[in-house]
């Protein structure tokens, strides 16, 4: 674990050096593509890649570019087994060059939740953009919803992870 974290830190450090070098060359902000349609998610904070100022804005098309992950689970907020489809959080964090695994997820209804030092390699949490293979409306608690595969990992069925299931997700602020 320690080794892995050290290794991660080294990679991050090398990224920082690389990015600061690239910053000099003035290609800093143009690195990531910009969203073409309505922004659904804004990632801010301790990240190393950007597409608008100090943040990364993502629309549905951009999210759909990532590997699509899908699982079926029951939740306290849905009726019966439900299929969630979306992108792995660790993939997203990697994409934005996040320097830690702790972040605050906030929602449209002003709800927020902090997750600290999550091992998203191990815990296959996703940011879902489809519920039962359909895009989610606001009244369906969409358009984005952080979700854990509770059925496959019963040990995740605790208040800690339940409170982390932020629906109507709009922002992630990496610590």
């Amino acid at each position: 674990m320690g080794m892995r974290r050290l290794k991660g830190n080294l990679i991050n450090l090398s990224l920082v050096i690389l990015l600061s070098l690239s910053g000099w060359t003035g290609i800093r902000a143009s690195e990531l593509p910009k969203p073409a349609s309505k922004v659904l998610l804004t990632i801010t904070g301790n990240i190393s890649r950007f597409n608008k100022d100090d943040s990364v804005e993502l629309d549905l098309a951009m999210l759909e570019q990532f590997d699509q992950v899908s699982f079926v689970t029951e939740t306290p907020w849905t009726d019966g087994p439900t299929r969630f489809t979306g992108v792995r959080i660790n993939q997203l964090l990697e994409f934005v060059g996040a320097r830690s695994n702790s972040f605050r997820a906030s929602a449209l209804d002003k709800y927020w939740n902090d997750l600290r030092d999550m091992d998203f390699e191990k815990v296959p949490a996703i940011i879902a953009y489809q519920l039962n293979d359909k895009p989610m409306r606001l009244r369906d608690l969409g358009p984005l919803w952080i979700m854990f595969p509770f059925d496959e990992y019963p040990e995740l069925a605790t208040e800690k992870y339940k409170t982390a299931c932020v629906w109507q997700l709009t922002g992630i602020d990496v610590h």
């Binding site: 306290p76 009726d79 449209l108 209804d109 606001l138 009244r139 369906d140 608690l141 109507q168």
Partner: peptide, 17 residues
């Protein structure tokens, strides 16, 4: 409109509870 939708969503959750 969005506030109405958000309220709807929260009511759905309470309904399930």
């Amino acid at each position: 409109q969005s506030a109405f939708e958000i309220f709807w969503g929260s009511v759905t959750v309470l309904n399930l509870r």
